[in-house]
Amino acid sequence: MRSIVLPGDLIATNPKVAGHGTYIENGKVYAKFLGLLDKTDTQVRVIPLRGKYIPSAGDVVVGVVKEVTAHGWIVEINSPYEAFLPSTENPEYKPNKKLNEFLEVDDMIIAKIANIDPKMRATLTMKDRICRPIRFGRIVVINPARVPRVIGKKGSMIKLFKNELGVQVVVGQNGLIWLSGDRRKVNVVEEAIYIIEREAHTEGLTDRITEFIKRRKAENE
């Protein structure tokens, strides 16, 4: 089992192996926040257990439009920072039309973070296959620190939901998850996601979720 580390715990003495969630002082590597220690030969990193979503370039996020401006949309992404989607980055947009004909306040979108500057101003883009405005389906909100477990190793958990239940899942790095499919099956996936969130720091999760889905499927039939 991976051990829990607290901020300031010494986790390595070689600065070359310092990974995410660590900081270096006087050539020693310390943990930066509360998390699980992941130690390999080439790298040590701390997997956070808690914390807010901090945007970084290339992340897929699910957001809510908060404001429509002359040049684009301001999007709330469940983070201390809000993001901006310029009109030119929305493929649906056509010039000479009003922006709120495409996206209105409170509309939800799946977008990608194109860029983030040092002052933490994030720019979004929707020019990607996965990006779209959300007009149906369900949104589930979880702790952003647990997102990697919902995705699973190389998307194993998402594939599981798709293959076993036929529910399409898009996981935003910011902790918002979009589910689309048969209503009863979406219910099962929602429950499964909450189980993953609760038990994110334990092992053998994929097996337990597989079992859970099989049991639920049997009950429904």
Partner: peptide
């Protein structure tokens, strides 16, 4: 603060 997962140098 630790429980909130805020990055800190120590306690």
């Amino acid at each position: 603060l630790v429980d909130a997962g805020i990055p800190m140098r120590g306690i």
